[in-house]
Each structure stands twice: as structure tokens, then as C-alpha cells.
Simulated assay, not measured.
Amino acid sequence: MGKTKKLIELDDKAIAILEKQAKLQKRSLKNYIEYTLEDQALRFSEPSEEYKKMMDDMIERDEKGLLKTHTWAEVLKQYGRKL
């Protein structure tokens, strides 16, 4: 995949907030902004064919009563954890 450079303008307050977040993640401001934008773009993207197939299978199993589900409390109990 190629890369494209874009010039963006942000107000000083936004930059200050983003710099603090970048430091918390031990990233440079540039890297943090790029990472955040790419992550957000992926959230807007179409799910993969594999994911769609898996979800269709889950829906079909649920409709047929074959899907086994567990409550959060059951999962925690299985791993010796408490709420």
C-alpha cells in the first residue's frame, strides 16, 4: 500500500492534548496522529470476507439453537476470577 503526504492544521489546544496522549503511549506526536488516523480508518472499512463468513455461521448456528454461549460470570468462574 502506498503512502500519501497531507498537510493538516490543528489548533494549539488540540496539539497539546494529542502530545500528552502521544507521551502516554511513548510515541512521537507524528507517529501518534498517524496511528490514530489509520486505526480510525480501519474501523470504517468493510469487514473481511472471512469475518463475514464466520458471523454468518454464528448467526446460522444461533438460529438452529446450536450456538453455545456462556455468561460473563461463568467465564470468570472458569478462570478462578470474581466480578
Rank of each mutant, 00 (worst) to 15 (best):
K53I: 06
Y35A: 15
Q40D: 13
I59L: 01
Y32T: 00
M54W: 10
K52G: 03
R43N: 14
M58G: 03
A41I: 13
M54H: 09
E46K: 08
K53M: 09
D56T: 03
N31Q: 15
R43I: 10
L24V: 08
S45A: 12
K52H: 07
E38L: 15
T36Q: 02
E38C: 15
A41C: 14
L37P: 01
D39M: 11
M55L: 11
Y35N: 14
E49C: 04
Y51E: 12
L29W: 00
M55R: 00
K26D: 09
A41P: 00
S45K: 10
D57S: 08
F44H: 14
K30W: 01
L37S: 09
M58K: 01
K30L: 01
I59Y: 05
K26V: 12
S28D: 14
Q40A: 15
K30Y: 05
E34F: 00
M55I: 09
I59E: 02
R61C: 04
D39P: 03
Y35F: 12
A41K: 06
Y32C: 00
P47Y: 11
K26Q: 12
R61Q: 07
N31F: 06
Y35C: 14
K64C: 04
K52L: 08
K26R: 13
L42P: 05
F44L: 15
K52W: 04
